[in-house]
Amino acid sequence: MKTYELKGYTLVLEKIVFISAVFTADHEEGKQFNVRMVGDMLKFKFPTHEDAVLARQLLVKAMKEA
Rank of each mutant, 00 (worst) to 15 (best):
K7P: 04
Y9F: 12
Y9R: 05
Y9G: 04
Y9T: 00
T10R: 00
T10Q: 02
T10Y: 01
T10H: 01
L11N: 05
V12M: 09
V12F: 09
V12A: 11
V12Y: 12
L13Q: 04
L13T: 03
E14D: 15
E14C: 09
E14W: 08
K15A: 10
K15R: 10
K15G: 03
K15D: 06
I16Q: 01
I16C: 02
I16R: 00
V17R: 07
V17Y: 04
F18N: 15
I19W: 02
I19R: 13
I19D: 03
I19N: 04
I19A: 03
S20D: 12
S20P: 02
A21C: 00
A21N: 03
A21S: 05
V22R: 04
V22M: 06
V22A: 06
F23E: 15
F23T: 05
F23K: 03
T24Y: 07
A25Y: 08
D26V: 11
D26T: 02
D26M: 05
D26H: 08
H27E: 14
H27G: 05
H27M: 13
H27S: 14
E28C: 03
E28L: 11
E28H: 05
E29N: 05
G30C: 04
G30I: 10
G30D: 08
K31S: 13
K31A: 12
K31R: 13
K31Y: 15
K31M: 14
K31V: 07
Q32A: 14
Q32L: 14
F33Q: 13
F33Y: 14
F33N: 13
V35L: 10
V35M: 12
V35A: 10
R36D: 15
R36N: 14
R36Q: 11
M37Q: 15
V38N: 08
V38K: 07
V38C: 07
G39Q: 02
D40N: 03
D40Y: 02
M41P: 04
M41E: 11
M41H: 08
M41I: 15
M41S: 07
K43W: 05
K43T: 14
K43H: 12
F44K: 11
F44D: 10
K45P: 04
F46R: 15
F46I: 10
F46P: 12
P47M: 10
P47R: 12
P47L: 12
T48P: 01
T48I: 09
T48M: 06
H49D: 11
H49I: 09
H49R: 14
H49E: 15
H49M: 11
H49Q: 11
E50N: 12
E50S: 08
D51Q: 15
D51G: 12
D51H: 10
A52Q: 09
A52K: 11
V53L: 03
V53E: 04
L54T: 04
L54D: 02
A55Y: 01
A55P: 01
R56M: 09
R56T: 08
L59S: 15
L59H: 11
L59Q: 13
